[in-house]
Amino acid sequence: MSKRRPRGRMLHGLHSRIVTARVTLWTLIVPPTVWAVHFLFAYLWAAVSCEKAGRFASFPVLFWAGTALALALIVASALVAMVQKETPGDPPPHDAGTDTDRNRFLATATWLLAGLSFAGVVFTALPVLFLLDCR
């Protein structure tokens, strides 16, 4: 996977910026935070609509736009993490106490969390397709 080279100057610039950017705990929690915000947004919207309006929330465009935005953020985070976890250098295992290995570890964790968050957002959104009332 590490052999993939982005084409074009702009992409190349982006790629080198990503490689040099530091992975931190803040970037690590981006995917689960997006998932949490989407989850709260979806559930609170449904709950408030059922309680105050007495019927199931019906703003499909806004809901699907929000879901698409959440998924896009998670995918972007995953792409960045994917580039960063493939930092070239020494062979695995990458478990030394160095900055490079720390970056690889955090990036891999971010990448896995992004996968989990993607599934989480999809699983949160799917019921809206099928459930049509407040019961």
């Binding site: 799917l126 099928f130 459930l131």
Partner: peptide
């Protein structure tokens, strides 16, 4: 999930 969700429709 896709298989069982339709069953939850009243």
């Amino acid at each position: 999930l896709v298989y069982v969700l339709p069953q939850m429709r009243p």
